[in-house]
Design a protein around this nucleic acid. Sequence first.
DNA 1: TTGAAAGCGCTACCAC
DNA 2: GTGGTAGCGCTTTCAA
Lengths: 344, 344
Amino acid sequence: MLTENLKIKDIAKALQVAPSTVCRALQGRHNISEATRKKIEDYAAKHHYRPNLFAQSLQKKKTRYIGVMLSSIPNMFFSQVIDGIEAVTNENNYFSIITQTNESYEQEVKKIENLEWRSIDGLLVSLSSETEDLTHFKRLQEAGIPIVFFDRITDAIKTHTVSVDNKGGAYNCTKQLIEEKGCSRIAHITSPQLLSITKERLDGYLTALNESNLFISDAYTKYCAHGGKKSEEIAIAFNELMTLPKPPDAIFTGSDRITMECLNLAQIWKEKTGKSITIAGFSNFEMPEILNNNIITVKQPAFEMGKLATELLFELIDKKDKSPQKYFDKIVLPTTLNSNHLNR
Amino acid sequence: MLTENLKIKDIAKALQVAPSTVCRALQGRHNISEATRKKIEDYAAKHHYRPNLFAQSLQKKKTRYIGVMLSSIPNMFFSQVIDGIEAVTNENNYFSIITQTNESYEQEVKKIENLEWRSIDGLLVSLSSETEDLTHFKRLQEAGIPIVFFDRITDAIKTHTVSVDNKGGAYNCTKQLIEEKGCSRIAHITSPQLLSITKERLDGYLTALNESNLFISDAYTKYCAHGGKKSEEIAIAFNELMTLPKPPDAIFTGSDRITMECLNLAQIWKEKTGKSITIAGFSNFEMPEILNNNIITVKQPAFEMGKLATELLFELIDKKDKSPQKYFDKIVLPTTLNSNHLNR
DNA sequence: TTGAAAGCGCTACCAC
DNA sequence: GTGGTAGCGCTTTCAA
């Protein structure tokens, strides 16, 4: 574009052939003689020919851009996912356009519209915590844009999904609290109720409690409407729990932000009242060992998740024109449990 | 694109005017009667007309995309910067394409080429730690693509830059180690020597030591060639320091990763030898309070930095065709010092 | 196997 | 003020 780029016409003129011939050669078609193909390819390579993407897109309605939609970039988990996505897009000469929903349904809808306008070739989505209505995604899919859901997924749309074993991770973490830390009154502060991940983690948590015949109470589960984006809501949940007639001796936390914030709150609580409370939960912070409280964390394979989701998306993009996809993968990756106890 | 979009021709036909008239109206030009302009605008709004960006780009060589180049997305500081960039691009109906250099000069050059091919309208850059030769950026700039440097900046290219007061931040942090923590043998583990930020931080560190007449030794400053991306290099630096004849009693750390890793190493060191070492340094981790060791951190206004850099870039993009920019801003933002001591 | 030409949707120039 | 039209660079018929 910038540096007076070579155009197909230029090559045609230089080589005394028709533009259409050059085009065919460059597309690696077979209805062309070996000799002219080679001649054209060599010339193009030598002069660093790069097709004009706008002209190509205008014609083919393909952009080599994929959209990525997630709640928040400065979040350890998501930024690691993006890293994985970048690795694959880059390899395939695609670029990704990353947008944040900030956990807002309204923003999600608006940004889908923008991405549609930009004519992305496919979309990777982790749902906002407010999203119930999925028509904006359905519209996109019907318009021929393949979608792959990751992390916060949905059954309501037929496509590939990549998630982690949230139930298992929650179960293991809770179990560890019970067996290693000797906790018996375990509360749960988690993300908004609508999210798939919230339900699965709650399930694992309750299963572990049940198995050990431990105290279960609805008052022990707190949902944060903003998914922990606002620290006040976590503080409120924490204080409500601690001022219950029977306060918990541990809190199992359902997300990165909630885990960090609760660690902080627990420390302040201890300084104020002298009573300590154990925190354990989901977090993709790289080095849980340097956090105090001897914390147990459930870590998700975020990079892997981004990588896999993108690979599946490319599969859908490639197959699109050929045969309609019949079967969809529901990939579930394992989580890992980290604790000082286990690591040292 | 997808949903059988309205085209200018369609509007023209429906309203019985020429395509060129529609075009003028939609561009808000003045050589058109108020009546027809209104008529066309109303029709377009009612039918949700959105121009085809490829056609537009093909014509105007403008894409409404900007490129963003930084070393690593899953890094607290950079992901917060991206958040700030997103806020501004989004507001201006632009999109950003984010690419990682992974601290590699080679990748930086290659990705600049790709971005150039995509015809971005402007570029935001934080240099890779290997970069010495800047011709790839100069070429881009000469081709008419405005660039703004942030964080890891350079003097060798005339343009706007946004950075933080690295020297001041380093000075304050070191001073705090001396005065509040009573440390007297302070070492420094930092990023690669080439980076602007490394030099400035070293300067602040040395100034503080000098002022207090404290021990200074070249052996006390360790550079991590990979900017801390590899944890081994940090471990090596740490161990070399601790096994010196006169080991330090504190380490001032020059980046997010290095700070976290050193905290971890210090903890292990303490468990192994019983000797404790104080860590303090640059980190954009949100809640330093929950880290142990009573850590002092220097925090950078990352979001603000992304926001400002993007605003400056848009200024350059807008002005480009009009008058050549003569004076460039060198914005330096302040850092903040966080410590348990100060906050409570 | 190759070439000529139309057209993707938009903009800008030149006539009226 | 408004309309006709060429052309951005590429792809894709269709004809030779």
